[in-house]
Amino acid sequence: MLKINNLHAAVDGKAILMGLNLEVGSGEVHAIMGPNGSGKSTLAQVLAGRDSFTVTDGSVDWDGTDLLALPAEERARAGLFLAFQYPVEIPGVSNAYFLKAAVNAVRRHRGLPEYDAMDFLARVKAEMKAVGMKEEFLYRSVNEGFSGGEKKRNEVLQMALLEPRLAVLDETDSGLDIDALKIVAEGVNRLRSPERSMIVITHYQRLLDYIVPDKVHVLSQGRIVRSGGRELALELEAHGYGWIDADGKAAAAASGARS
């Protein structure tokens, strides 16, 4: 269970998250939608432990652990996974080396034996097949020269290998055509399980046709302004974000007046 309470975060002194509350139960999939600049990606980065964001107030409790007290690598080892909106290219490091280093770091932490080269290859090849990635992507540099779809598939592959308890997908649909979107969504759906929670961040409703969420939240001006079921996403699709922005501003003004 993830409990985000009154989260405030800033970057370079500029407040982005301004009192965000969210609870995600075990095995649930929550979608977070919102206009550009509403703080969606900031939420993802803060949860994953990016140092450039400063948490100025609030707390994040994750199954009894103070998530914000852990450095990024320890969050990952404890089972938090962020699928990046823009996966980083790392020329000179083969995908195989990267994936094995990541998987073994996580396995060490969980008290599992590290994979040797053979076991790892067998495992990674099976997972690659499942996300429709060719084996050659193992021997190419991490994300270098990958198309948008290939990068996102590589993210889903990493998620499958690392078996997180909580996965945060940051605009995994951005830049994908419909075929790539379906493949990525299938990969995500395959990983849904009662032990695994997911936060799916997206600007557009269409991803939610394929990854059906349990709950939908609307983020505006750094806080959640509406929560509901799947129908909320459809409503946003039909009416756009204009009315939300107005709501958000009203809420911000109201809270300003209170303080």
């Binding site: 990016r50 990267f98 990541a102």
Partner: peptide, 8 residues
């Protein structure tokens, strides 16, 4: 950050 976010 990308590498750290993978547990490295």
């Amino acid at each position: 950050f990308y590498l750290r976010a993978r547990g490295i």
